[in-house]
């Protein structure tokens, strides 16, 4: 195997690298999130059709985009851990699942609450929202399967298989839900699609999408550090870490 792959695979190296990346990435992410929200909430003009309720787009769309991307990250980490038997990829997959589930919940909640002012009902079976709900079930399936196994090594492998099966099914689910929605509702406007969006509204959205991607990376790295400690608690480098009592 290529030496860098092996170096990447060693837990202490990954633990240190994750810590280093987080030290500068976490502040930038939080800063980007705050500016994006303030910009989207207070400084962009309100939309002529929906009034101010469209401002929810600045958290709904980024959360939805990153939640979907998160599932692919989890599935690919699972594939790497299955094919090349790399423990670190297994840790990455285990860390990605709860973060993805949380972001999917955010996308669902904001999508539902957005439906109330625009369509008058708390839950609308729009194509996007329904696919997002199914994605949440897929995430919860992976998390539940991981908890069901006692042998954590086998749990990682089983979740890798399940997330790969899920990855193959996601395009099918999205296409069939879109088609199902158009069959019953007629091709009404996709209220979450940002096709003709005014540039002044577009820039905060792009900033928020970037901020959510960075947030996903930070949460993933944080979870991996916690997971690494738990899995490697009997090794020397963890004991050494403790004796140095470096608790940053």
């Amino acid at each position: 195997m290529w030496p860098i792959f092996h170096k990447f695979g060693s837990p202490p190296w990954l633990y240190a690298i994750a810590g280093a990346i987080l030290r500068w990435l976490l502040p930038i992410t939080l800063l980007a999130l705050v500016t994006g929200m303030v910009w989207g909430l207070l400084f962009t003009p309100s939309e002529n059709v929906q009034g101010n309720s469209y401002r929810i787009i600045y958290i709904h769309v980024p959360a939805a985009v990153v939640a979907l991307a998160g599932y692919y990250v989890m599935a690919l980490a699972g594939a790497v851990s299955l094919i090349w038997r790399m423990k670190m990829a297994d840790v990455a997959m285990k860390a990605a699942a709860p973060v993805g589930a949380a972001l999917t919940f955010v996308a669902l909640f904001t999508g539902a609450i957005w439906g109330k002012p625009t369509w008058g009902t708390w839950w609308v079976w729009d194509a996007r929202i329904t696919s997002m709900l199914i994605l949440l079930f897929l995430y919860l399936g992976v998390v539940a399967l991981y908890e069901a196994f006692d042998n954590k090594e086998a749990a990682g492998k089983a979740c890798a298989v399940l997330s790969l099966v899920g990855m193959v099914n996601i395009p099918i689910i999205y296409k069939s839900v879109d088609w199902w929605y158009s069959l019953h509702q007629g091709a009404s406007i996709k209220f979450t699609g940002e096709t003709s969006i005014h540039p002044s509204m577009l820039y905060p959205l792009l900033l928020m999408i970037a901020a959510f991607y960075a947030l996903f990376t930070c949460a993933l790295l944080l979870n991996m550090r916690a997971e690494l400690l738990q899995r490697e608690q009997r090794t020397q480098w963890v004991q050494k870490l403790l004796s140095k009592d470096v608790v940053n």
Binding site: I134, F137, L138, L140, G141, A144, L145, A148, L162, V165, G166, N169, I172, I173, S176, V177, W179, W180
Partner: peptide, 18 residues
């Protein structure tokens, strides 16, 4: 595993149902 299997595969059943 009985209850868990429905949580795992029901999302994959949905396109077939549609």
């Amino acid at each position: 595993g009985g209850m868990l299997i429905s949580l795992l595969i029901l999302p994959l059943y949905m396109p077939v149902l549609i």
